[in-house]
């Protein structure tokens, strides 16, 4: 009896999550896949016809936006690594007793709604706003200079909005490095810089890896930043999909684009994992 129970326990544990994923992830994904191959319109209804044309149309009309999204996502991710690593490093090694306070401060802005946070950038970066206004008044910037409605604003917004998802995994990886390992490096004639390059950075890679996954994927498929901070020629694929769903109500094309994006991201993730030697990196993470 108890052996039966013991044998069933793992399944019992996975059951709620499994059902949840089945209902809210698998089913919609299948429905979406089916939709992407349907043809028709909202008024007359959609019929499944193996209509691959939506994929062809989507890629023909929106390949620019797809490439742009990947480029923006990549740029934002790189910026996040550059900005986030020192922050994670500082909190992990210099945070002392107040680590949790610093982590909380890092997360504090993110208690505000994503959209509001992005809109607040609109306010900060306004052409004559509190940042650019004084600089223009001092003649440090030309009067027609602007940040908003440029790719820089979109990439900056993406980098900002997903920053905690980069910093937190890096922090976790750095925090679990045994300080004695750093002392050992120091003892074995490595100076601070060498210790960082040879020991700290390699040991933080699982965190960076996780951070890249957790930021690149949502940044690439984001549409809020482009719609709030972007201008012309900054539209990302997320905006196109959203438009296809809600405005044009061309569900097959929207679904086809969603699937294309998903496939591209999955391929990217696998290539990335392969290149980094995930197993090795994850093994270290599992320590």
């Amino acid at each position: 009896m108890s052996r039966v129970r013991a044998a069933l326990t793992p399944y019992a544990l996975i059951f709620p999550g499994g059902v949840w994923l089945a209902i809210f992830f698998v089913v919609p994904t299948v429905v979406m896949l089916s939709l992407s191959l349907q043809s028709g319109n909202v008024a007359d209804g959609f019929v499944f016809t193996w209509n691959w044309q939506s994929y062809v149309d989507g890629l023909t009309n929106y390949h620019d936006q797809i490439i742009r999204s990947l480029a923006y996502g990549l740029a934002a991710t790189l910026i996040q690594i550059v900005i986030g690593f020192p922050v994670a490093y500082w909190i992990a090694f210099k945070g002392g007793r107040h680590k949790s306070v610093y982590l909380f401060l890092l997360l504090l802005p993110f208690l505000v709604s994503f959209v509001l946070r992005t809109i607040s950038w609109q306010f900060l970066l306004s052409d004559n706003g509190m940042l650019l206004g004084p600089l223009k008044d001092l003649g440090l910037l030309p009067h027609d200079f602007r940040v908003l409605a440029t790719p820089y604003a979109v990439i900056g917004g993406l980098a900002y909005n997903f920053l905690p998802f980069m910093v937190l995994p890096m922090y976790v990886a750095l925090e679990r490095i045994d300080p004695r390992v750093l002392e050992a490096a120091n003892d074995l004639y490595a100076n601070k810089f060498q210790t960082f390059i040879r020991v700290v950075f390699p040991l933080s890679l699982p965190g960076v890896f996780a951070g890249v996954l957790m930021t690149f994927v949502p940044a690439t498929s984001d549409y809020v930043n482009a719609s709030v901070l972007g201008g012309t020629n900054t539209t990302m694929i997320g905006n196109v999909i959203q438009n296809q769903y809600l405005v044009t109500q061309d569900y097959p094309t929207a679904s086809a684009l969603s699937f294309t994006l998903m496939a591209l991201l999955l391929i990217g993730i696998f290539a990335y994992a392969k290149a980094l030697g995930t197993e090795d990196v994850l093994e270290v993470a599992a320590r």
Partner: peptide, 17 residues
Amino acid sequence: NKRDVNMVFQSYALFPH
């Protein structure tokens, strides 16, 4: 790193990677 002594740590502190 400038001292000519080396240490064996309690938990060994080997470089895990």
